[in-house]
Amino acid sequence: MIDISLTVNGERVSACVLPRTHLVDFLREELCLTGAHLGCEHGVCGACTVRLDGEIVRGCLVLAVQADGSVVETVEGLSDSGEIADLQQAFIDRNALQCGFCTPGMLIASQDLLKAGGVPSREEIREHLSGNYCRCTGYHAIVDAVEATAKAREAAR
């Protein structure tokens, strides 16, 4: 077991973890933050997408020990801070989620694109989300929601 300390959603967290525990299992099982989901555990589906030191990562491809000293943000944190409130509302308005299992990862990946500013094309949105699997929606509504949010943010600048 290895001692780690990190910041998760703005809170200082100290824990003792097995080296083999990946970041998502740590978040879900140790911190009871179940917003990041396990969809494949081999880095393909994007359901476990979280933010690590400001960049999006696959939570299943990062060990908890590797996050020692880092800043981790999950969908719970981004919700509480209000950072993605408009994007979440756009997803709701557009019914851009059905079962919702991909949604936390999809929102975090979308926000990563939107943070860059401007209004990305539909192709750019699709490309940026190309590592996030959704079995329910067929993606069209998700692209709509991201596009609408980009336009609204651009108009508000």
């Binding site: 933050l33 179940t34 917003g35 990041a36 989901h37 999950t74 969908v75 719970e76 919700s79 979440q88 997803f91 709701i92 308005d93 019914n95 989620l97 919702g100 299992f101 949604t103 936390p104 929102l107």
Partner: peptide, 16 residues
């Protein structure tokens, strides 16, 4: 109309 319960799922508060 918007589905009830969606806010929960967008905030990572689903209960799977």
């Amino acid at each position: 109309v918007a589905r009830p319960g969606l806010a929960r799922l967008t905030q990572g508060r689903g209960e799977y």
